[in-house]
């Protein structure tokens, strides 16, 4: 019994050591409808040919944490293996009536709201299990929302390296400079996950982020 406990203890320690060196657990965090799943889908499609989840214009489409194990990404002469963790959008309020505006039926909207609240709780819990985080922000929205500041502040407190992605640069109202001004200490990459714009620069920044995570 004691031998088994000791064996399990060491095997867990060694597996954690190798996991941290070989496979980077990369979380996608941000407010709802910023494009986290669109970006995770873009990466998965680029490197595995398959998508990770569905996207929708209705907020809180992702209500469960979604994974893709072992996504091998190549950039220049380097290759890294990531576990992609796509999380539900974090919000401080959920009102089922907001979903009715998107022509959802009342019961459907209520069920979506209930799942969304649980999704937010799960997303926060998953902060314990990621090595690096891509914070996806909608570049057409005001970046100074407290949710964004709270997410990033929490990652800093946990010493988890952060890359900020300003998504939807294809939109007319997009303003990356506002995001850069709001978070001057971080790398900000402007992309359009939907159209695949500027993904080369994103992968370059992702590899820099991975380097910080592997330290």
């Amino acid at each position: 019994m004691v031998i088994r406990i000791i064996r399990n203890f060491f095997s867990r320690i060694f597996s954690e050591m190798f996991k941290s060196k070989k496979n980077i657990s990369l979380g996608f965090y941000g407010p709802p409808n910023a494009g986290k799943t669109s970006l995770a889908n873009r990466i998965c499609k680029d490197w595995t040919g398959e998508e990770i989840g569905t996207v929708s214009r209705v907020p809180h489409e992702t209500r469960k944490v979604q994974f893709r194990e072992k996504v091998d990404i190549k950039y220049k002469d380097n290759q890294l293996s990531f576990k992609l963790v796509d999380t539900p959008g974090i919000a401080t309020k959920i009102d089922y009536e907001d979903f009715l505006k998107f022509k959802l039926k009342k019961k459907e909207a209520q069920s979506r709201a209930k799942e969304a609240t649980q999704g937010i709780i799960d997303a926060i819990k998953w902060l314990d299990d990621v090595n690096a985080v891509v914070v996806v922000l909608d570049s057409t929205e005001n970046p100074y929302s407290q949710v964004n500041i709270t997410i990033i502040g929490n990652l800093v407190a946990r010493k988890i390296p952060v890359l900020i992605v300003a998504n939807k640069v294809d939109a007319k109202k997009s303003d990356i400079k506002k995001i850069e001004a709001a978070f001057p200490e971080y790398d900000v990459v402007g992309i359009s996950a939907k159209y695949g714009t500027n993904m080369e620069e994103f992968y370059e920044s992702l590899f820099k982020l991975a380097k910080k995570a592997r330290k």
């Binding site: 959920i94 209930k114 609240t117 649980q118 709780i121 926060i124 902060l127 709270t150 407190a157």
Partner: peptide, 18 residues
């Protein structure tokens, strides 16, 4: 609040919404 308290506040708020 501290950063971890802000996230805890969001978590507890979501529990209460439900």
């Amino acid at each position: 609040l501290r950063a971890e308290e802000e996230t805890r506040l969001i978590e507890d708020t979501m529990v209460m919404v439900g």
